[in-house]
């Protein structure tokens, strides 16, 4: 997108009430309002940015917190287009939200093959309180993560568990893949020149 000073675009996707907004709220503002403020569904998508330092380098992460309502799904491409990472959120206490994750995996594979996927089970604090509430087993989540080559996190926006870790991982992976790309890009320019010369040779001979 034009005019953005953003390095890594991160998009949050998942069923409504999965806890995407709370996750972003915890990461960007380090606070949790879920207990005091009644649930408010997001309209469209909200945007926030944060600068992190990885290996002494500043990286701006631009985060798109999308609405989970079904009617936005048809339009969700405008939010995840060009994203470097997608956090697919599901509520650990709600099986249907986990099933929805598969839809998003399919969607991303089809349109944004470059986008790295992170699976994020939310509301871990509820499970820590009462293990009975768990509706998505660790093994199910893990096998899905393996399937789509994703990292898996179980987070709690209330306690802050694993949220910084997840975003740090995203930033590190972004830097690593960028470095890799730069190397590749150098390789490619070299190859191109060479093949051009060869082509030329073939023509004249």
């Amino acid at each position: 997108m034009a005019g953005s000073k953003v390095d890594a675009k991160v998009v949050l996707l998942g069923k409504s009430y999965a806890g995407k907004t709370c996750l972003v709220e915890r990461y960007l503002k380090n606070r949790f309002l879920g207990d005091t403020v009644p649930y408010q569904n997001t309209i469209g998508a909200a945007y926030g940015a944060k600068t992190v330092t990885i290996n002494g380098k500043n990286i701006v992460i631009g985060i798109w917190d999308t609405a989970g309502s079904e009617r936005y799904e048809a339009m969700s491409r405008i939010y995840y287009r060009g994203a470097r990472a997608a956090i697919l959120c599901f509520d650990l206490t709600d099986k249907s939200s986990f099933d929805r994750v598969r839809f998003w995996i399919g969607e991303l594979r089809q349109h944004e093959s470059e986008c790295k996927i992170y699976l994020c089970g939310t509301k871990y604090d509820l499970i820590a309180e009462d293990p009975e509430k768990r509706a998505v087993s660790v093994s199910d989540a893990k096998s899905l993560a393996v399937d789509c080559m994703a990292d898996l996190f179980e987070t709690s926006s209330k306690t802050g568990k694993d949220i910084l870790e997840m975003f740090n991982k995203i930033a590190q992976n972004y830097v690593a893949s960028k470095n890799l790309k730069e190397e590749k890009a150098e390789d490619q320019s070299f190859v191109l020149k060479e093949s051009g010369r060869r082509h030329h040779c073939l023509c004249t001979s």
Binding site: V37, N41, A45
Partner: peptide, 13 residues
């Protein structure tokens, strides 16, 4: 009707 606009810049259809 939308409290959510108060938290962050939004982009909505």
């Amino acid at each position: 009707a939308s409290e959510s606009f108060k938290e962050a810049e939004s982009w909505t259809p």
